[in-house]
Design a protein around this nucleic acid. Structure first.
Length: 192
DNA sequence: GTGGGGATCTACT
DNA sequence: GTAGATCCCCACG
């Protein structure tokens, strides 16, 4: 296993969203280590994207980390769940990649403990599910990947990648049709 | 201090 | 397919 260098994240979001597919996402906690291969992502580009929290360069305490350096974690609490993103692009451009699904790799027992006795494919096939399975939480906000309990490492190279419109952003006008969702073609753990 | 909205999940019909 | 759970953050007064 090899950690992705800082430079890896510093590229346009649509490019990074593709290249994150197949990478390993790792979280260490006091309970142990859990990880999975990233198999589904979505890009959010604040400058032009009505569906992004940072639309029109909206700057709040919450979106602040997206204006900073690529490769940091943007976590966000939604209802009773936590979602995890990777900050992309240049400093000053509020862009991030949402991780929507992973394929369980290490610490599968720990994931069952956290998620309950479910079928394996239900452990991590959604953005709120994978954060619970891996133990990612709001406290991970703003941490750089690779220097904290959060890591992104190389994994496998997907044979085929599919693209399509994003999920769960019905109320965002034109932006809802942007084909900014990427997934590993045929992978069982893709959310839908 | 309060009200409403949101990048979801689960269970039930 | 649809409703309800249930929580943080922002906007407004």
């Amino acid at each position: 296993m090899e950690l992705m260098p800082k430079e890896f994240f510093k590229k346009p979001p649509l490019e990074l969203a593709r290249e994150l597919l197949g990478c390993e996402l790792i979280k260490e906690t006091s309970e142990g280590t859990a990880s999975g291969y990233i198999v589904e992502t979505e890009a959010y580009i604040g400058a032009v994207d009505k569906a992004a929290h940072s639309y029109n360069y909206k700057r709040t305490k919450r979106t602040e980390v997206m204006f900073g350096e690529a490769g940091h974690a943007y976590t966000y609490v939604m209802h009773t769940h936590c979602l995890v993103n990777v900050v992309a692009g240049e400093v000053g451009e509020p862009e991030a990649i949402l991780i929507r699904a992973v394929e369980p790799l290490r610490g599968v027992e720990l994931m069952y403990e956290r998620r309950g006795d479910k079928k394996e494919k239900d452990l991590t096939n959604g953005p709120g599910k994978l954060t619970k399975a891996l133990g990612i939480m709001k406290a991970d906000y703003g941490h750089p990947y690779g220097k904290s309990p959060l890591y992104i490492a190389d994994g496998f190279t997907p044979e085929h990648i599919s693209t399509g419109p994003r999920v769960g952003i019905d109320n965002s006008g034109e932006a809802r049709n942007f084909p900014w969702r990427f997934w590993v073609t045929g992978n069982t753990f893709v959310s839908r």
